[in-house]
């Protein structure tokens, strides 16, 4: 097949690989979202100790999603997973108004991280199925997202439980990669 064939194989092993880092406070719904990406059963999900990784195929992309536990004692370990991230997904429990400040602080710290510099940010305003949730616009204001100017960002209202909005968010994430040529496997 020759060396040229190897290059063609390299090219046509087709699926671009995307490393997605899924972060957010505990109980924001990260693992539920991850399972929702993979169309898996979401009826029994317990707080994540450590992390989950899943590879999901989606419209020509292989998404390697790293879901890191959100509990306070685990958060210091987030930084171990920053390297080579293509898209950062930050999940917020839109119904938990008491912790909006805490989630805003954690997000700001992430945005300061050198290793995540310029990495596109997708925020899922999750749990939109609950009655007392804040809408995406309110969260945008609260987190002062308009001031995020060093990267592309998008806020997506969703419900990991019903699946609503989940796909739209992922499509945005993949679009970021097609425009900047994702890495190939």
């Amino acid at each position: 097949m020759g060396l040229l064939a190897l290059l063609r194989k390299l090219k046509s092993s087709g699926d671009r690989e995307l490393r997605i880092l899924l972060l957010g406070l505990d109980n924001a719904g990260k693992t539920t979202l991850l399972k929702s990406f993979a169309s898996e059963d979401i009826s029994h999900i317990t707080p994540t100790q450590g992390f989950n990784i899943k590879s999901v195929q989606s419209s020509g992309f292989k998404l390697n999603v790293w879901d890191i536990g959100g509990q306070r004692k685990i958060r210091p370990y987030w930084k171990n997973y920053f390297e080579n991230t293509d898209v950062l997904i930050y999940v917020i429990d839109s119904s938990d108004k008491k912790r909006l400040e805490e989630t805003g602080e954690e997000l700001n710290e992430l945005l300061e991280e050198q290793k995540l510099h310029g990495v596109p940010l997708l925020i899922y305003a999750n749990k939109q199925d609950l009655p007392n949730r804040s809408v995406a616009a309110e969260i945008t204001d609260y987190l002062n997202l308009v001031n995020v100017k060093d990267r592309k960002w998008q806020i997506q209202a969703c419900s990991a439980l019903t699946g609503e909005g989940v796909k739209d968010g992922l499509e945005w994430a993949m679009k970021q990669m097609s425009s900047s040529k994702g890495k190939k496997k």
Binding site: L7, L10, S180, K181, K183, K184
Partner: peptide
């Protein structure tokens, strides 16, 4: 070491 390409150098 020349860095800047975002994919394989062939």
């Amino acid at each position: 070491t020349f860095r800047g390409h975002t994919a394989e150098i062939v």
